[in-house]
């Protein structure tokens, strides 16, 4: 044993993380590399490993003239942007309101948090019933005097917004939770000083709370955006991308190309485009944060 002390220490460390490392390499890293390789082929997985034709960048080029891909990409971007913006705004306002003006704060926060920890399948099925022609949404709109209420999940214009509404409702609780814990750590003396200077609630909200919470907002924007780009379950459960391709999103279409059309190479190419897209968006956010996030 001629190993130096440091090498031995490192060895011990690596041994500890080895079980996990093997798992990650086997089940995450190798598949990732593999998906990159097959994105340049027209692999049909029923033909077995290595049985493929190289097609170069064909998959990456063809994608852009595929109506389903383009529609899904558009829908994904709309979905992500709307979900992030509305979830955060509503959550921030709610968090402040609950913190400042509410009795029984814990039960309210718990109620808001419930959808986040509920099974997405159960939640989606309940929402499907709520959106049906006999459900509360349609009846409410009818009561408001609209003769031709939207058909929600069966409507070309409303299917994506319907899923978005449900997703925002489901995500608010988590954002409120994060905001609440950040709000509780805010310095009280600054607020007292502002009050002495005669600042009202609204002024305090925009001049103090919003900037103080910008690191939290930044964290929530990054995580919510990434998870919105990867939305799959509600689409699969509620609309299956329809009607037409009006609510199809990228991950759903990737799944379809791979497991309905058996186009593994094409689907892998799309996953890599999704990855690059997410990577660029996140990079831009990191660069931009200097301009609006104050720690």
């Amino acid at each position: 044993m001629k190993l130096s002390r440091k090498a031995k220490r490192n060895m011990a460390g690596y041994t500890f993380i080895l079980p996990n490392l093997i798992g990650v390499i086997l089940f995450t890293f190798i598949p990732i590399v593999y998906s990159l390789i097959i994105s340049f082929t027209n692999w049909d997985f029923t033909k077995g490993f290595g049985n493929w034709n190289w097609v170069g960048f064909k998959n990456f080029v063809d994608i852009w003239s595929d109506k389903w891909f383009v529609d899904s990409l558009k829908n994904t971007i709309v979905f992500a942007v709307v979900v992030v913006v509305f979830t955060l705004i509503i959550a921030l306002v709610l968090a402040v309101v609950i913190d400042r003006f509410c009795y029984a704060k814990t039960p309210i926060r718990l109620a808001l948090f419930m959808p986040y920890i509920s099974n997405v399948v159960a939640v989606a099925i309940v929402w499907v019933m709520m959106y049906s022609s006999w459900g509360p949404f349609t009846q409410m709109v009818k009561k408001l005097g609209v003769d031709n209420p939207p058909q929600w999940l069966g409507d070309y214009k409303w299917s994506l917004p319907s899923v978005i509404i449900m997703t925002i409702w489901g995500g608010i609780g988590y954002a409120v939770m994060i905001y609440t814990s950040a709000i509780q750590g805010l310095p009280r003396d600054v607020y007292e000083a502002a009050e002495v200077d005669g600042a009202g609630e609204i002024r305090k909200f925009f001049a103090l709370t919003v900037p103080f919470l910008s690191p939290t907002t930044f964290f929530l924007v990054v995580t919510t955006l990434i998870s919105s780009f990867q939305v799959f379950a509600p689409i699969q459960l509620m609309t299956r991308g329809g009607p037409g391709s009006s609510s199809s999103v990228l991950v759903y279409y990737i799944y379809q190309s791979a497991f309905s059309f058996y186009k593994m190479g094409y689907a892998s190419a799309m996953s890599w485009i999704l990855f690059i897209l997410l990577f660029i968006v996140t990079m831009i956010q990191w660069k931009q944060q200097k301009k609006w996030v104050s720690y």
Partner: peptide, 19 residues
């Protein structure tokens, strides 16, 4: 075939819903 099925499904849906 699976792609043609999807295409026909979308267009049929457009027809049946009046789009």
């Amino acid at each position: 075939l699976p792609m043609l099925e999807k295409i026909l499904a979308e267009e049929t849906e457009a027809y049946l819903t009046g789009a």
